[in-house]
């Protein structure tokens, strides 16, 4: 497990299969939570992760596809959509500074 400094994170991508449901909801929630931090939050299909993504959030079951689609990018996985501890940790780290374990 390595930690990446949050100062390196400018853009977070929430990835899911269709980019229509769960990832959109989580992206919307994160956008609100990170509103004043300058970090951009977008969602994307797991097969079309933008090259300038600094951090990828995705469901556990899609982690392998995300890693294959964006080699070398840090991936944080979550299991639940509402209040997942892994997602909360990312929010807290971005707001307060520090590192994110990936």
């Amino acid at each position: 497990m390595t930690g990446i400094p949050v100062s390196d994170i400018k853009k977070i991508i929430v990835a899911c299969d269709a980019g229509m449901g769960s990832s959109v909801m989580l992206a919307g929630t994160l956008k609100r939570q990170l509103k004043n931090t300058g970090v951009i939050v977008e969602h994307a299909q797991v097969s079309a992760i933008p090259a300038d993504a600094d951090l990828i959030l995705t469901q556990q079951s899609l982690a392998e596809r995300a890693r294959a689609a964006a080699p070398g990018k840090p991936v944080v996985t979550f299991q639940i959509f509402l209040g997942d501890p892994a997602v909360n940790k990312v929010v807290k780290a971005v707001k307060e500074g520090g590192t994110i374990d990936v």
């Binding site: 449901g21 959109v24 909801m25 989580l26 992206a27 919307g28 929630t29 956008k31 609100r32 969602h43 959509f81 509402l82």
Partner: peptide, 14 residues
């Protein structure tokens, strides 16, 4: 992306 705001609201409500 137009439904992003409603889904974010849904998440907050829940």
């Amino acid at each position: 992306d137009r439904h992003l705001d409603i889904l974010a609201e849904l998440a907050e409500v829940l």
